[in-house]
Amino acid sequence: MSAKSIALTRRDFLKLTGGFAAFGFAIFAFRPQPTFPSILPPGAILPADLFRAQCQRCGKCVAICPHHALAQDATGTPYIDGLSGWCDLCLDCVRVCPTGALRAVDPKQFKLGLAEIDRDQCLAWRGNGCRLCYEKCEMLQKAIELDADVRVYVKSETCNGCGACVNVCPQADRVTKHKSTGRAVALKVLDNGNTG
């Protein structure tokens, strides 16, 4: 090393240590808490806090996802919201995940979350006769039902939270309680874990 380097004064030391501590703490304290808990990729069967500890934020799962269903939030944690694409449980993300944060699951059984319809926003519930999500879901899980008035219901036993209904929903009002989507249907985290 060169003979000429400057001495680390106590002030510098305090400044550096303080700066780093503040930086680290700020990240920890202000890490984005989604207004609603976000859906983690399939295979995130670990408890949510353990998933956050084990995920390296490498983004391999996002890069490989063939349906563009996954995205990384501001801290790099992958999530699914159904806006850019929906998950068909191909489990490519599980295959590429290097850390074991995502683990093999049975795609027939696994539930990512649950679709929840906002009846004030939904066009079918407002009587406009929209049934795009029903038609989409008929091809996939058959988890959306129509009643006599062509209003849509989600069957919570069959819905696996793939997000296809969010993806096709034409409603784009910003005024909705599911702020992150603006659609009349949003994915809800299941009670038994898998929360973000």
């Binding site: 930086f23 990240i27 920890f28 890490r31 956050r52 500890a53 390296q56 490498c58 790099g76």
Partner: peptide
């Protein structure tokens, strides 16, 4: 913090993201 904190801000990581 039970989170890989530096991975979140690592310049190489964020630019890759």
């Amino acid at each position: 913090c039970h989170t890989p904190v530096f991975c979140i801000v690592c310049p190489a990581g964020i630019v890759c993201r």
